[in-house]
Design a protein around this nucleic acid. Structure first.
Lengths: 174, 174
DNA sequence: GTCTATATGATGATAGAC
DNA sequence: GTCTATCATCATATAGAC
């Protein structure tokens, strides 16, 4: 069907589809191999374990997030909100998957890491040691934008982004 | 240990704990019975199936939500935001559990229902047929508040509520 | 690289004794 | 109401042929 060396990528594509559709825990290797028209053990030629397959699919989001909170500097808040929205929008399907399954994926330490990303993002927006009230305002802004990237996932980016960023900025008092 | 007729309630309490901790799909009947110090089949005297146990735990939230969106009328927006916050705060642990596991709990139609609740809430806030932009603003407001009820779940209600409602109101342009 | 066949273990659920 | 014993089913994973 496809070039042999593409099989690994095809496995990831199908797994990603099924994980997003039905959840990670709820998807078996059998379902993946069936949809690809190969057998279960064939998967083990390309991935050492189920976990390794899961990790390989989440990795791009993790890398993007880490890079984002590591490289940005405090500055124009609205610009930061917009860039952040672009990123969560790109990864919106995997984000939903992770949030939905945080406990199951707890072994990957993802719940803690996402919490940490958000904390650092708030520091970028508000500086260190914001008051609890301003921290909560920022959570409404950022959490609300995340919800938009999920709830309007099927709409064109520009339609959603400007309104979502406006609302987030207002929540922040900008 | 406890009065015999309390066993059903004790099962629900322990199941609820484990579901919130680890997720529904990820919790086995064996774990529940172990923590209670009884055996697996004993559970089946009190609940016809695993599903029935799960449903019995989610039911209070479903009833409260349905009642809320059914009985409120359009009116003062800030008051509505406050009452809504009180409710999601009360059910915050189960809400997390559901959102995290929407696909797994798809058979209960919960994903669709939660989406519907939010849609009706937005109608209450904005009236019928809001512009897409205002709809998105409302999603930031409501989604952002939900995030607060999760992220600050350990703080006292009043500290969180006033700041969260303020931010939501600002996102809505109030 | 992919197959058949199989090992091993957990799960939800039932039958029937006490 | 709770137990012991057991079933069918499904999962991840491995061994070894082609």
């Amino acid at each position: 069907m496809a070039r042999p060396s593409d099989t690994k990528a095809r496995i990831q594509a199908v797994a990603r589809e099924l994980f997003v559709e039905q959840g990670v825990q709820n998807t078996s290797l059998r379902q993946i191999s069936d949809r690809l028209g190969i057998t279960k053990p064939a998967l083990y030629y390309h991935f050492a374990s189920r976990d390794e397959l899961v990790r390989s699919i989440i990795q791009p989001l993790v890398e993007d997030m880490e890079r984002f909170v590591a490289t940005r500097e405090s500055g124009e808040a609205r610009e930061l909100l917009e860039e952040y929205f672009d990123m969560i929008w790109r990864h919106r399907d995997i984000t939903v998957m992770i949030v939905r399954e945080m406990s199951t994926l707890g072994y990957l330490d993802l719940g803690q890491r996402m919490f940490d990303w958000r904390r650092r993002l708030i520091t970028l927006l508000l500086g260190p040691d914001p008051t609890p009230a301003r921290h909560i305002h920022a959570t409404v802004a950022i959490g609300g934008m995340s919800d938009c990237s999920v709830e309007y996932a099927h709409l064109p980016l520009d339609e959603v982004k400007s309104a979502a960023v406006d609302a987030a900025a207002a929540a922040l008092g900008l």
